[in-house]
Design a protein around this nucleic acid. Structure first.
Length: 278
DNA sequence: CCCCAGGTCCCGC
DNA sequence: GCGGGACATGGG
């Protein structure tokens, strides 16, 4: 399937730490799971190519990659950021926020706490492989909350979750008892949505913002992790040791309904060294 | 041996 | 409400 796309950067989108199920291959294509279908995705110029066994509707892929969103207002904010060069984000222009599955985002970001992207991807892969094999699935996909709820905690530990194993399992158990809770969150305003997400075990304010942003496309979220804390302190607080809470409030107020997008560009750029290099 | 990674939890104040 | 340590695991 070929999908025309303007102002899109597939590599920056999939490498920016918002989704953990895509692996870059030698030829530059990405293998992963798109809308529940294992597939291969690559970009040539202004065209996205998707190869999968089952047929997918182009409008669903467009929606998944948020391709119909006009990024110009985001770029206006990015140009005003006090970096040395106003075009500092040129190499990642076209980075977009994916509309991924909300359960998968919630599960993945429980794994993300005090962890690094490389290892989160590894645990994600282990979860897909173990539970797909166990259920004898023909196509490997991320396990449902029901599957996680029913397994043994020691299995999750063996897979590599460490001390986060009981957090993920208890969260899955809650969802299997309250199956409509994710749609309740979907229909909530920011403050109440965060309050509800934060009630899951292993989820604090930072992960809750990630879940709201990536799992529910809540663009007014502004996750502040160690990378964001560093870059924001440098840009706006004269390198003073201001708290995460204060940086979070600052970003949300400054960028409003686009805070999540600005955050994604800042986070990816900080982590890859695009911003602030000698 | 150390420190770090898309933090959270739990404790004492 | 804020500060500090513990927490699994793997890489540098």
């Amino acid at each position: 399937m070929n999908i025309p796309c303007k102002d899109f950067n597939l590599a920056a989108t999939l490498d920016s730490g918002q989704v953990f199920g895509f692996a870059r291959e030698e030829n530059g294509a990405y293998r992963g799971n798109l809308l529940g279908e294992p597939c291969e995705v690559w970009q040539i110029g202004d065209t996205v190519h998707v190869s999968s066994t089952k047929q997918m509707k182009p409008e669903h892929v467009r929606r998944y990659f948020d391709l119909d969103f006009d990024l110009s207002s985001v770029y206006t904010h990015l140009k005003e950021i006090p970096a040395s060069d106003p075009d500092w984000f040129d190499s990642v222009r076209g980075l977009r926020l994916i509309r991924q599955d909300s359960w998968e985002a919630l599960a993945c970001f429980i794994l993300s706490s005090n962890n690094n992207v490389k290892r989160i991807q590894g645990i994600y892969k282990n979860l897909v492989e173990y539970f797909s094999r166990r259920a004898r699935r023909q196509v490997p996909v991320f396990p449902s909350s029901g599957e996680i709820a029913k397994t043994h905690e020691r299995i999750l530990r063996q897979i590599g979750l460490g001390y986060r194993a009981p957090f993920l399992q208890r969260s899955a158990q809650f969802l299997s008892v309250n199956p409509d809770y994710l749609s309740v969150i979907q229909d909530s305003e920011y403050e109440q949505a965060i309050e509800r997400i934060i009630s899951f075990p292993g989820i604090g304010p930072k992960v809750a913002d990630c879940v709201f942003l990536y799992g529910f496309h809540g663009l007014e979220a502004f996750p502040v992790d160690v990378w964001m804390l560093r870059v924001m302190r440098k840009l706006y607080f004269k390198n003073r040791g201001v708290s995460e809470k204060r940086v979070h409030a600052f970003g949300r107020k400054k960028w409003g309904s686009l805070a999540g997008y600005v955050q994604q560009y800042l986070f990816h750029s900080a982590r890859t060294g695009i911003l602030f290099r000698p």
